[in-house]
Design a binder for these strands. Structure first.
Length: 239
DNA sequence: GCGACAG
DNA sequence: ATCTTGTCGC
């Protein structure tokens, strides 16, 4: 699929925050979402070695599943280098370039994209999910494994139970229990879909495990791509 | 000044 | 994120 807006690489952290502040005006983290969601994509990234530096090697994977059967209908991967160091709140600048490369290799256009990270549950309300949504125009939502910002009560024990994630007086997401006996996930709106609808889709794609099947499949794929890239005899020794 | 801090 | 042994439980 084609990417609408090209990614801009910021020169430093201040520039990165300015970009987020500008792009935030184009985000629409609300609404019922697409009328028909037939396919849902998962995005995930894996790193080689100690991650955190600005030039870490990484692999990004996109896996598109049938929203009802959860069968894989399309997928793509891309290997590259991080173009920004890991800084909480500026996470998107690190992974987005390679994620966009992978998206361009996709043969189909998913109806919804579930991201590994947060959407508006972010210091400036513009996490990875919002950023990817604005650049692609696709409906997106964030599904984080841990908290970045906000406070919340402990959600109920049953699948589907949740608690508001509140930051600076605003409900920015929901701490959602997907399975009994597992830690909850942090769901937040990204672009062109609101929190309630996002949670519905997260629950529908996580019938068995803690994380959505989309995320699990993407995780497996990018790890495999990274292994193969590391085993490649492609980069001949510089000797 | 002391913590907190998506992946 | 990734580094890693054993251990608890279905």
């Amino acid at each position: 699929m084609r990417i609408l807006q090209p990614h801009t690489r910021p020169a430093d952290e201040a520039a990165a925050r300015r970009i987020q502040d500008e792009l935030r005006a184009r985000a629409e983290p609300f609404g019922p979402g697409p009328e028909r969601v037939r396919t849902i994509a998962g995005v995930d990234v894996a790193y080689a070695g100690a991650a955190g530096a600005a030039d870490d090697q990484l692999a990004a994977a996109i896996v598109v599943l049938d929203a009802f059967t959860l069968e894989v209908v399309d997928s793509a991967v891309a290997v590259g280098r991080a173009e920004f160091p890991y800084v909480p709140g500026l996470f998107a600048f690190r992974e987005l370039p390679t994620v966009l490369d992978a998206l361009e290799r996709l043969d189909t256009v998913p109806d919804l994209v579930l991201c590994d990270g947060h959407g508006v549950a972010h210091p400036r309300r513009f996490g990875l999910a919002c950023h990817l949504g604005v650049l692609t125009g696709l409906p997106t939502a964030g599904v984080g494994k841990t908290r970045l910002v906000g406070e919340h009560a402990e959600p109920g024990a049953a699948p589907g139970d949740g608690a508001d994630l509140v930051h600076e007086g605003e409900v920015v997401g929901r701490v959602l229990r997907t399975q009994r006996g597992v830690k909850p996930v942090y769901v937040s709106a990204g672009h062109r879909i609101g929190l309630d609808a996002a949670c519905r889709h997260v629950l529908a794609t996580a019938p068995r495990y803690r994380l959505p099947e989309t995320t699990r499949q993407a995780d497996a794929l990018c790890r495999q791509a990274l292994r193969e890239a590391g085993t490649e005899s492609g980069s001949p020794a510089l000797s």
